[in-house]
Design a protein around this nucleic acid. Structure first.
Length: 463
RNA sequence: GUCCCUAUCGUCUAGAGGCCUAGGACAAUACCCUUUCACGGUAUGAACCGGGGUUCGAAUCCCCGUGGGGACGCCA
């Protein structure tokens, strides 16, 4: 049996970080076992689903590199099939028409809540041997309800949480088709998972409570029940439920915020799953190692600092050309011409082991591309008379120097000696003049990469 | 209210009865490196939710509390 997993988001918003992890795990499981990963768009909520959201999900999946082998399937395009199955169930007696109005249902619910009972449908239209149903009220379009078993328990061996059993008496006859004939979620999922031959349902644990209902329908249909693995939820940095207001929830936000895909993927993989003490690993390794046995059953809190650490790690590893491209596009977005200054690949090489994200990298690179304007405060602090004199001295030496690190370093050292100054007393004012900041990578390397023309020109502005 | 899930350092986690005086990682602290700031290196502090069992022995198994989460829709 080949493994078939699926990711089934509803297109009502962006691909959020929790969904991304679910997708990652389902994808990895299919890859691990040489199976197929299927993408299914659950768009039956016509009021909330949008084509933009579908696109956002597709974009998010693509950014992460989670390619699907089949799909995307759209539930709205499968209406005929759902109706066909509903017809079969009605004929087989595993489903029935219910004429209870929404008002009656509300009243029933209120009554049950008043009695501190679990709100549930009371089965008034459920056909039973020897039971006489009232005549269908005129002009009322019925809903279709699933005829859930009355007793016994539904159970499954959850691949993450272990054995879960729920008494059928806890379940009621839920609606599988609305009065307008459209099928409902719990029913569509069942038909889809069945038709698509899904072997492993890997999804968020907010679906644990849907699972017994779905299993009952599957059984009524004579379908094979897949294996279920329910992933616990991801909490925000603050330990609260993820919210759009407080957290970065859309995966593409991470792109905007300067994160590399491999950092996000590695972080997500490690959030709720582990492989011994391994913290840093490639997607190839992840796919080789991934299993359902090492998934945590409890909720995990998102830790932005750890993500940042991973991101810094992957930036250090990244190819200079790739980083230069990233810096260039981020600069361009700020209206900075990335071609205007020193060669980006060389600049980026200077900063790649000092920054935690791509936006910081762009910040660092920017002074190499645009005219800089050190603040008055900055110049007042660092460009003292002595400093200016030293820089003037250095300018002369640099103008004549061979343009390579060793010679540049030599020129700076000579200036120090000539002026009777310590290295930082020259290097820091030089940084301020060249980059507008008192800190930078090794000053000789900065000078070299910036280029003679720019260096002399910036020196001239201040000395 | 009912049902379901869950509980190891601040955080992510290792741990499947003795290997645990509980390991790793992020973060924190200290020191080292250093031409500034970073990076890097070394070290330190930091946890088994509480109570009962079971057992020669429990972080690991069971029960009860407590905390957290979820579900109870003609939403998905």
């Amino acid at each position: 049996m080949t493994v078939r997993t699926r990711f089934a988001p509803s297109p009502t918003g962006y691909l959020h970080i929790g969904g991304a992890r679910t997708a990652l795990f389902a994808w990895a499981y299919a890859r691990r076992h040489g199976g197929q990963f299927i993408l299914r768009i659950e768009d039956t909520d016509v009021a909330r689903s949008t084509p933009e959201a579908v696109q956002a999900i597709l974009d998010g999946m693509q950014w992460l590199g989670l390619a699907h082998d089949e799909g995307p399937y759209y539930q709205m395009q499968r209406m005929g099939r759902y109706k066909e199955v509903i017809g079969q169930m009605l004929a087989a007696g595993t489903a029935y028409h219910c004429y209870t109005s929404k008002e009656e249902l509300d009243a029933l619910r209120a009554e049950q809540e008043a009695k501190k009972e679990k709100p549930r449908y009371d089965g008034r239209w459920r056909p039973e041997p020897g039971k006489t149903l009232p005549p269908p009220p005129a002009g009322v379009e019925p809903v279709v309800r699933f005829r859930n078993p009355l007793d016994g328990v539904v159970g499954w061996d959850d691949q993450v949480k272990g054995r879960i059993e729920i008494a059928n008496s806890e379940l009621d006859d839920f609606i599988i088709a609305r009065a307008d004939g459209t099928p409902t979620y719990n029913f569509c999922v069942v038909v889809d998972d069945w038709d698509m031959g899904i072997t492993h349902v890997i999804r968020g644990d907010d679906h644990v409570n849907n699972t017994p209902r779905q299993i009952n329908v599957l059984k009524a249909l004579g379908a094979t029940v897949p294996l279920y693995a329910h992933l616990s939820m991801i909490l925000g940095d603050d330990g609260q439920k993820l919210s759009k207001r407080r957290n970065s929830v859309a995966v593409t936000d991470y792109d905007d915020n300067g994160y590399l895909q491999e950092a996000v993927l590695n972080y997500l993989a490690r959030l709720g799953w582990s492989h011994g003490d391994d913290e840093i690993f490639s997607m190839e390794q992840f796919v080789q190692w991934f299993d359902l046995d090492h998934i945590t059953a409890s909720a995990a809190q998102f830790n932005t600092e750890k993500l940042a650490w991973l991101n810094a790690h992957y930036i250090k590893q990244a190819d200079d050309v790739r980083l230069a491209g990233q810096a260039a596009s981020r600069l361009a977005r700020r209206g900075v011409d990335p071609e205007a200054g020193a060669p980006l690949e060389r600049v980026v090489a200077l900063y790649k082991d000092r920054v935690a994200n791509l936006n910081e990298l762009a910040d660092a690179v920017e002074p190499f591309c645009v005219e800089i304007h050190p603040s008055a405060e900055m110049t007042a602090t660092h460009l003292t008379e002595a400093a200016r004199a030293a820089l003037a001295d250095l300018r002369g030496r640099l103008a004549a120097a061979d343009w390579q690190k060793a010679a540049i370093s030599q020129a700076i050292k000579e200036t120090c000696t000539a002026r009777g100054m310590k290295m930082p007393q020259v290097a820091i004012p030089l940084r301020v003049v060249l980059l507008g900041q008192p800190q930078s990578p090794a000053i000789d390397a900065v000078v070299e990469v910036l280029g003679r023309e720019t260096v002399l020109q910036r020196l001239d502005k201040h000395v």
